[in-house]
């Protein structure tokens, strides 16, 4: 297992509601899969739903590759609709 690093995670819209905050720094193994695990454990079903339909922007790139390494920041955002 890779060493844990400090990753800045920003939450948007429903992701922010699920996390109860806009942003935090997590000490995690720096992969997309590890982040998904940590977020689901911490914030339960509301966050799991966001992760199912939303995007993980890993250092500015939307990725569905669970092994993609994280350098320093991740944005969690659900799709946007409504007008």
């Amino acid at each position: 297992m890779a060493d844990e690093v400090a990753v800045t995670v920003r939450y948007f819209a429903a992701a922010a509601e699920a996390a109860g905050r806009d942003e935090e720094v997590l000490e995690i193994e720096p992969t997309a899969a590890a982040l998904r695990r940590v977020l689901a454990e911490r914030y339960g079903a509301p966050m799991t739903r966001v992760l199912e339909v939303g995007s993980l922007l890993v250092d500015g790139v939307v990725t569905r590759d669970p092994d993609r390494p994280i350098r320093s920041k991740v944005d969690v955002l659900p799709p946007f609709a409504g007008g």
């Binding site: 819209a13 946007f80 409504g82």
Partner: peptide, 29 residues
């Protein structure tokens, strides 16, 4: 653009920059 609840978002898709599909590659149900 989108507006729901108390939150809204706005963006522009224009070549050669990234598109909407780069932000949300898979269309959700």
């Amino acid at each position: 653009g989108s507006a729901t609840g108390y939150a809204g978002q706005v963006g522009v898709a224009a070549a050669p920059g990234p598109r909407w599909r780069d932000l949300f590659p898979v269309e959700p149900a």
